[in-house]
């Protein structure tokens, strides 16, 4: 009885909600601290590659979208809790994540690179023994570091990528392991630093995460990604950030 009352109440509220909406409504989350993919400007507005892609996808799907920011640590739990419907935040498709969420096809692909100060004498993972190396907690860079170099180097995990950059600049860490493109973007503005070592290709594909029961949205988004690849919208956004195709 109690359960029924609650149910009918919820349905009533839900119906008011859907009646007001025209077309598809999608709530999208991004992190807002991962330049150039997602960040905030001085007016607090979310900007970046992920945000542009999100907007292009919404335009393609003729959907009504809202984009919110959510810290990385809680970005998957909050998706599961229905706080939003999709995560477009440069998220790698991994086995562990696939247990919790579903992914669309990739919207770009990624590999890892080390970055360090020019002339630091570090030219690859073998030079880093005993040094402090930073990465963002809860990213594949952080996990790769812990799984492959723990014990050899001092692994420092940050809540945000930007905090790791700040600590490399102040000299607290000697190198950083990061997804290649954000690091590329950061290196453009910080000429004292450079890529070191080889590409670490971990066959990493970046997709849009949705809830497991939301196959409809997943397929619609996957189709939209392919569509903006076709019609040039993707290339236009890509060129705004990188001089090479990152798909």
């Amino acid at each position: 009885m109690f359960k029924k009352t609650i149910m009918s109440f919820i349905l009533a509220v839900a119906m008011v909600g859907t009646a007001a909406a025209e077309g598809m409504k999608i709530r999208i989350a991004t992190e807002g601290a991962y330049p150039p993919f997602n960040m905030k400007d001085a007016s607090g507005e979310l900007i970046g590659f992920d945000v542009d892609i999100a907007k292009a996808l919404c335009k393609q799907m003729q959907a009504d979208c809202t984009i919110v920011s959510q810290d990385w640590d809680g970005i998957i739990p909050a998706l599961l809790a229905n706080k939003y419907d999709a995560i477009i935040a440069s998220m790698s498709i991994t086995e562990e994540r696939l247990k919790k969420v579903d992914f669309t096809g990739r919207y770009y692909s990624n590999y890892l690179r080390f970055g360090a100060k020019k002339g630091s004498g570090i030219s690859g993972a073998e030079d880093m023994t005993g040094k402090a190396v930073g990465a963002q907690r809860a990213t594949i860079a952080g996990q790769w570091l812990e799984d492959n170099l723990a014990g050899k180097v001092q692994v420092k995990l940050y809540d945000k990528q930007t905090a790791a950059y700040a600590d490399m600049q102040s000299g607290r860490i000697d190198a950083i392991l990061s997804d290649a493109y954000p690091l590329f973007d950061w290196l453009k503005e910080n000429a004292d630093y450079e890529y070191v070592g080889d590409k670490i290709d971990i066959n990493d594909q970046i997709g849009i995460a949705v809830r497991k029961d939301d196959a409809q949205l997943r397929d619609a988004l996957s189709a939209a990604i392919l569509a903006i690849r076709e019609n040039g919208a993707y290339a236009e956004i890509n060129a705004k950030y990188f001089p090479f195709d990152i798909y």
Binding site: D73, I76, P77, E96, K100, R137, A138, G142, Q143, E146, L157
Partner: peptide, 8 residues
């Protein structure tokens, strides 16, 4: 927090 970020 590091463990949690892996398994949720």
């Amino acid at each position: 927090r590091t463990i949690f970020s892996r398994s949720y």
